[in-house]
Structures are given as C-alpha cells and as structure tokens.
C-alpha cells in the first residue's frame, strides 16, 4: 500500500477524479439518442483514464466476459427493436438494422462509460480515496463503510463458490436440471451469501465499537490532501467541459 500511496502523489487529487467520474457518468445517463455525442464523451473519458494511468490490459481481461454479454444484448436490441435501414434480413426477420445497431451501441457506450469512470479509482489506494471522501465533507462513517465494502467483495466470491460446491455435493447435478429448477437453485445460493455477509458486517461493527471506533466525534488524520495548482486547473477544465456539454444538450446544437 505504501508504494501505491507514494505513486498517488504524482496523480491528480482524488477529488478531481470524483468530479470527473461524477460528470462523466451523469452525462452517460442523461444523453439519449445522440450517438455521436456519446462517442465523443467516451473518447474524452478514455483519454482521461489513459492520462491517470488505468491499466487497460488488466481491465480488459477482467471485463471481457461482461463485454461479450453486452455485445449479445446489443444484437438482441437490434433484432427486437428494429428501425431504420435494414442491413440484413433472413426469412423475413430483420436481423440487423441501422437503428438497432445505434440503440445497441448506445447501451454499450453507456455501460462502458460507467466502467471507465469506476476504473479510474483503481489507481488510488483505499486510504487516499477515504481521505478524499472525508475532505469533501462526506461523513467518515460512510467513507469507511465504502472501503470496508470493497474489502468484502473477494470474500463474497469465495463463499459463493463454496456454497455452489456444497450444493452439488448434495447430489444435485446442475447440468441435468430444467431451466426453472436451475433458477430456483440460484435463489438458494444467494441467500446464504447475503446472510453471512450481514452477519460478518454485524460482527465487524461490534468489534470496531469495542475498539473505540467513533469514540471521538472527529478522527484526526496525519495524512491530508491538498489541491495543487494543476488540480485546480483540471477542476476548471472539468467545469468548462460540463458547461459545454450542458449547452449542447439543452440548446441541442447540432455540431456533428
């Protein structure tokens, strides 16, 4: 962690990234139907991510599966919500249409924007992120909660795997089940994981209280963030970008 902490000294202040991620993902939600604007936004966010130093190869490896799924979704959307020029028609069914591809691409880009915004945080150590959240006046408890939540994710994955094994060892061959039974099986799996994570959380909270977490109103911190001139320039840049995008969206300037 210390190495990561040192490296973050050269990165922009985490608060800059909060602002950036907030703006990018808000626009991803707000923009509807304007594919070119979305592509522009995606290009900007990729550029930012590269500048911050997101490891794209690692991210790609993690998200490849998800991206395949998204691709299928976008094709489905072009089959079931066809519009515009027909590109491919088989047996009277419109398989690919320009309109469908546009909608699919919009969905893909929207999720892509969320993913790149989130990925920017992976460059920072958890400690720095908490400090950033605290310094934008987010309650310390909430900030701490986020960091604890992140820590539990791998544990949840592990537990899910164990439960799946235990279930199969009861003599249930998953591959042989009908779809309906398969679905009910997943509800059986999710329940213990949720319950155990809630119990974990409760126990963790209790042991933290026993060690006097929150005994004082404010927790002092040796490590504090301060905005450098370059950070302020970047914040201004983000503000300008936001205004520009806002104007384009509201006035509907057709710059493309």
């Amino acid at each position: 962690m210390t190495r990561k902490l040192q490296r973050t000294v050269r990165l922009p202040d985490p608060r800059v990234v909060f602002a950036l991620a907030f703006v990018l993902s808000s626009f991803a939600v707000v923009i509807r139907g304007n594919l070119w604007l979305m592509i522009g936004l995606m290009a900007v966010s990729l550029l930012c991510a590269v500048c911050i130093g997101v490891d794209f190869r690692q991210m790609w490896r993690r998200l490849r599966r998800l991206l395949q799924l998204l691709l299928i979704v976008s094709i489905l959307r072009s089959v079931f919500a066809p519009s515009g020029t027909i590109l491919l028609e088989l047996w009277g069914v419109q398989i690919l249409t320009v309109g469908g591809i546009q909608i699919g691409a919009l969905v893909l880009l929207r999720l892509g924007l969320f993913i790149t915004s989130g990925a920017m945080f992976t460059c920072y150590s958890v400690r720095v992120l908490i400090q950033g959240m605290v310094q934008i006046k987010m309650p310390y408890e909430l900030a701490y909660m986020v960091s604890v939540g992140v820590r539990f994710i791998p544990q949840l994955a592990e537990e899910l795997k164990d439960s799946l094994t235990a279930l199969q060892l009861r003599g249930v061959v998953i591959e042989e089940l009908k779809l309906k039974k398969k679905l009910s099986l997943y509800t059986y799996l999710i329940l213990p994981v949720i319950v155990s994570s809630m119990q974990n959380a409760k126990e963790l909270a209790m042991s933290m209280e026993m060690r006097a977490f929150r005994a004082e109103r404010n927790r002092t911190s040796f490590y504090a963030l301060s905005l450098k001139p370059s950070d302020i320039v970047m914040l201004c840049g983000i503000l300008a970008f936001t205004i520009l995008m806002g104007v384009i969206l509201i006035v509907g300037v057709d710059i493309f």
Binding site: E159, D162, S163, T165, A166, Q168, L169, R170, G171, V172, V173, I174, E175, E176, P192, S196
Partner: peptide, 19 residues
C-alpha cells in the same frame, strides 16, 4: 461432475454455515 460424486460420497464441511 460434482453432482455425480455427491451421490456416492457425502461431505461435511468444517464450517457448517457455508452449507
């Protein structure tokens, strides 16, 4: 497959809540 094994061999995990 695990399910086939489960019909021959029963397994009790050290940690009961996971099963």
């Amino acid at each position: 497959k695990l399910g086939q094994i489960g019909r021959q061999v029963g397994y009790l995990f050290q940690e009961p809540s996971r099963q």
